[in-house]
């Protein structure tokens, strides 16, 4: 669907997902290019979060969920039998809509992932914590209070702590589910800048309900409607010459 020169990192093939009787994703075929920002847009309830969560198998936690089709990560089916969900989630990190730092110190929040994966050396952890906080553009703000609770930070800072926490395990892909929707404009623009910097090293897939945001920072956009992928392509092209009437109606604000 997208430019042939791009390398694909995640691909879904005839992906269908059911929450009990509710058919939440219908035949999704998509190829997500590596080291780009891909935005998922669409009215609420159309399955954006659901799709995002199929990519790191967070849907496994929902009772009664049924998944058909394939999701390939670097060519491997992540729903295959031999897949280790733990290492999959280490490669595909996630930042949630509402910042969810653990009730621990800032340091322990960032070190949580590396410790989970067996890193014990204090020196190594110090290094990882500093690098991750720098990458998430929050080092300067918190470097003097690493041992203070992360819950004492502002909403925007907490969200960047969560991004740093996700980066600390060195993922290949970062999933962001409306991660700026609860934040003020200044924090939002900080995180947007951050996402654009991160795409040199990571693939970012972000759900957003903010058209301007999708247009500002994403390279590719996928438009979902009622569980279907209506259109997927280069963001600039899609916003200037949408290929589908429903896409046009949505991005010009006629519904949603």
């Amino acid at each position: 669907m997208c430019d042939n020169s791009e390398k694909t990192i995640i691909q879904s093939k005839k992906l269908n997902l059911y929450y009990g009787e509710n058919h939440a994703l219908k035949d999704i075929d998509i190829e997500i290019p590596v080291n780009r920002i891909t935005a998922l847009i669409g009215p609420s309830g159309c399955g954006k979060s659901t799709f995002l969560k199929t990519l790191n198998r967070m849907n496994d936690l929902v009772p009664g969920v049924k998944i058909d089709g394939q999701v390939l990560y670097r060519g491997e089916d992540i729903y295959g039998r031999e897949v280790d969900v733990t290492s999959l989630r280490r490669q595909i990190g996630m930042v949630f809509q509402k910042a969810n730092p653990f009730p621990m110190s800032i340091y322990d929040n960032i070190a949580y992932g590396p410790r989970t994966h067996g890193i014990r050396s204090r020196a190594r952890l110090d290094e990882i914590v500093e690098r991750s906080l720098r990458d998430a553009a929050i080092w300067e703000e918190v470097k003097d209070r690493l041992n203070k609770s992360a819950l004492g930070l502002s909403g925007g800072q907490q969200q960047r702590i969560c991004i740093a926490r996700a980066l600390a395990v060195e993922p290949q892909v970062l999933l962001m589910d409306e991660s700026t929707s609860a934040l003020d404009p200044i924090s939002t623009s900080k995180i947007e800048e951050l996402a654009m910097e991160l795409k040199n090293r990571y693939t970012v897939i972000m759900v957003t309900h903010n058209m301007q945001q999708a247009l500002r920072i994403s390279d590719y956009t996928a438009f979902f409607l009622l569980g279907e992928l209506v259109e997927f392509g280069d963001t600039q092209t899609m916003f200037s010459k949408p290929g589908d009437k429903r896409t046009e109606a949505y991005i010009t604000g006629r519904f949603g």
Binding site: N56, M58, L61, V85, T86, S87, L88, R89, R90, G93, M94, F96, K98, N100, P101, F102, P103, Y112, G113, T116, H117, C162, R165, A166, V169
Partner: peptide, 18 residues
Amino acid sequence: VPQSYREGSLALGGGKWH
């Protein structure tokens, strides 16, 4: 305990008991 703590931990690749 908020569900978001559990999700946060699992999303980082932690096992259930962890």
